[in-house]
Design a protein around this nucleic acid. Structure first.
Lengths: 133, 133
DNA sequence: TTTTTTACCTACCAATCAAGTATGTTGGTG
DNA sequence: CACCAACATACTTGATTGGTAGGTAAAAAA
């Protein structure tokens, strides 16, 4: 499997925030209840979205999260790369991968590269706005 | 990551067998040396390919493996599903997955389904013959 | 100023999977 | 029989997944 709960939950939280955006901050507890996701678990996923400008976080009463970017400017590809680390379908294509000694002769490499391109293209062609409409 | 070494090695072994097919049996050791894959590891992957009619196995001296199907009748999709078990990109789409309680409201499900279809289509449209030509 | 509410941080944990190794056994050949 | 090669089983090591527990920091309300 390629996409773990980490990336999938991030998408659902963002979609939920975008969908219920009224200008107010939405506490994570509300989102967790609606999406039936462990509050503690997504608490740990959120900071990376805050740091990268997807949401604004506010402490204390009346606090919570609020979308900062417009949903149509948030591609699924970027969000998944941020939360999953990589979208490469095989380890030979991962950024930190040691260069394969059989690179030149490998009969499968170009297939993996085409797949990788296709998957990235798929995710980069979808935005949060597409998900909630 | 989606495709582990299990499926990737299976493809490389089969491509190697097809490429070096001379009618004789090819011992796995030869393939392992050429492909620089642990012999013991692929030994454990082969039986499923034998049982499913991809290769013919022969014990003893002069034995080894030989392609049984024509490479152009071997789709990558079938080989990967056999060796990897599943090609589903997310757990919600796996065969044994418990039906998600939020199925109807989930804003991401249809995206995963489209991705799944796209990936399957990709792999089902490629055969071993494409890899070795 | 204390309490409440919320985000955030760190450490831990159990289960599973990945990628092998090690050690044999079975079956065919010369 | 000796040898070779496929096949089978058990184990290992390390990483990842999907959390939980417990506490800290900040902001607002009482």
């Amino acid at each position: 499997m390629m996409i773990s709960t980490r990336g999938r939950y991030a998408l659902r939280v963002l979609a939920d925030l975008a969908e219920h955006d009224s200008g107010e901050f939405i506490p994570l507890k509300e989102v967790a209840d609606r999406q039936r996701i462990s509050l503690k678990y997504i608490e740990r996923i959120m900071p990376v979205l805050t740091k990268n400008g997807y949401v604004l976080a506010m402490h204390g009463k009346g606090g919570g999260y609020k979308m900062l970017k417009s949903p149509k400017d948030c591609t699924i590809g970027d969000i998944l790369r941020l939360t999953e680390g990589s979208l490469a379908p095989v380890s030979c294509l991962m950024q930190d991968a040691a260069p394969c000694p059989l690179r030149e002769q490998c009969r499968t490499l170009s297939m993996w590269e085409r797949l990788d391109t296709m998957i990235s293209g798929f995710f980069d062609g979808i935005t949060l706005a597409d998900l909630i409409k």
